[in-house]
Design a protein around this nucleic acid. Structure first.
Lengths: 333, 333
DNA sequence: TTGAAAGCGATACCAA
DNA sequence: TTGGTATCGCTTTCAA
């Protein structure tokens, strides 16, 4: 597996003890800065340890000291700004509890995710994150570990899962567009595995709540280029559209760029509202209006539920495991 | 520390064995899907384990199976896009080796870093990342763990450290500006602990190599707002400036925004070149020209050196631990 | 198919 | 100030 090809076996505390001519308890004392040890002895031990390149086994040490909890955080793609924010939030919440977080970036590949899960089980006390495996596969791989899924509709009650509820936020967003005078509103949905997305359902429901018909939809890759292309496609097919709601902020940023290149003024000629509430959206021009998710809350909630699962104390119910989204108006709409 | 307040002690394999009425070896077999066990027995064990909420200790398990290596990655602020990229690169390089990476975000607070280091020692096999502690402090806290520092000039040879060499890239950048006809070039330096920054030194040296005098400098907080403010300040004091080089891309993005708001056309009225090579720079308008760092290479190099330190095989020399930067031209200059 | 015993590598408690 | 011994929780021989 790894590459410790010195052929030699591990250097243990006993080796150090032998070389230094003391008992291993003394070695332990020297290395851990406990008092109760002669300065000369200590130095001798330290020298021996250095010479041998001794490093204590964290497992042996963890076994005897009841050590900190560590959780595995599984993220599809850390470079995706949304997941960066979720990860940062989870890290923060975990640190507040003194937990360690092992981060696994699966690169959005399902086999990679399997491998991760396989190897994770013996390394962490719980698993949190985005998992695409079928549920019994997850169950098989994690065998008893507490698991908290994020943003995944699951049918069984086998795992906890945190649900993203954007319905209210999307309704508010569409209503805002309508009140600003827009009649023809399109959506740039994603071109993902399950189509149309649930966000698209929210869009449709919001539109009909406003008495508008379904609206026109284009599919976009989850990238700036994807958003730009999809906007062009949408406007070509539906020139009457004056506002778009997008699957996420990245696509929205692409739409903004597309609008600029097509000579459309935002928000006057074209209003754009994204989804996610990325910090990034505030940096660009014009600052992006978006249906924002409370990622910090998401991270905190995931960690909270993990904690409850870990000490088998009343886990949060399905209804409590929800993060709602709300409209955050900036300048693009 | 943590909060396992059930008062009860840990559920061990022996508890499961007792309840299931078998020996613990049998429990082990059942849980690890080894064969050599009766179906009925296995089921009984699994039930008992579930009922008790048993989870094997990862330390005990790791102790007997010589388990994977795990390294601690210390990052000042994961939400800073530059560090996100470094982290992603390190994660990737580590995964290629089958290593686990425990990520610690210190929030750029030095006490937090101390705490992290303190707690890290017993959890990982090596430490990689951005550390601001004095060296003997690091030494004391990590006691023998291999440590690979990033972007830190260090005097002693006690730790490996990966150096960022942007001199060549900055020279190329300034030369490019000069060749595009710019005579008055300013810099937006950061307003950090050590001022002026080393990047400022590179700037000065590049300017004089082109026969220009030192140029005018403003200090900026490391944020978009900081960059915008610093640009305004700079242009107020030096209206003749037609091009700026910035400490990093975030500040450059602020400069871009400032330019737009001041009615300056980029790159015609004002050319901007950043530093870091963030992906983010390609998303904005106009796409940012920048002196780019190979963050993937950085991550790979850090992990490579860690591996060498770990099996005490010829570590890379100081001169090999360098990442060079190069000019990446997009549209802002 | 099952169980008993021997470690894995450290720390902690108690004597010396 | 030191060393002996028990122990942490699990897996791996080796017998039964």
């Amino acid at each position: 597996m790894a590459s410790s090809e010195t052929g030699s076996r591990r250097v243990t505390i006993d080796d150090v003890a032998r070389i230094a001519g003391v008992s291993r308890q003394t070695v332990s004392r020297a290395l851990n800065d406990k008092g109760e040890i002669g300065a000369a002895t200590k130095q001798r031990v330290l020298d021996a340890a250095l010479e041998l390149g001794y490093r204590p086994s964290r497992f042996a040490r963890g076994l005897v000291r009841q050590d900190a909890i560590s959780v595995g955080l599984v993220i599809p793609d850390l470079l995706n700004p949304f997941f960066t924010e979720v990860a940062a939030a989870a890290l923060d919440a975990a640190r507040a509890r003194g937990w360690h977080v092992v981060v696994y970036d699966t690169g959005d590949r399902i086999e990679e995710e399997r491998g991760t899960l396989e190897v994770i089980a013996s390394q962490v006390d719980a698993v949190v994150g985005y998992l695409s495996q079928p549920e019994d596969e997850i169950d098989k791989l994690t065998r008893g570990l507490p698991v908290v899924l994020i943003d995944r509709e699951h049918r069984t009650e086998r795992f906890s899962s945190i649900r993203i509820d954007g319905e209210g936020g999307v309704h508010t967003a569409i209503r805002h567009l309508v009140e600003s005078g827009h009649q023809h509103i399109g959506m740039l949905d994603h071109a993902g595995r399950s189509e149309p997305s649930i966000r698209h359902e929210w869009f449709v429901s919001a539109m009909s709540a406003c008495g508008l018909d379904t609206g026109s939809v284009s599919r976009a890759d989850q990238s700036v280029e994807g958003g730009e292309g999809a906007l062009k496609d949408l406007l070509a097919r539906h020139p009457e559209v004056t506002a778009v709601f997008t699957f996420n902020d990245i696509i929205a940023i692409g739409a903004l760029r597309g609008a600029r290149r097509m000579g459309r003024q935002v928000p006057d000629d074209l209003a754009v509202i994204g989804f996610d509430g990325l910090r990034l959206g505030a940096l660009i021009e014009p600052p992006l209006s978006t249906v924002a998710l409370d990622t910090r809350g998401l991270g905190a909630l995931a960690v909270e539920q993990t904690a409850r699962l870990l000490n088998t104390s009343s886990p949060l119910s399905r209804d409590e495991l929800v993060i709602r989204a709300e409209l955050r108006l900036r300048e693009s709409a």
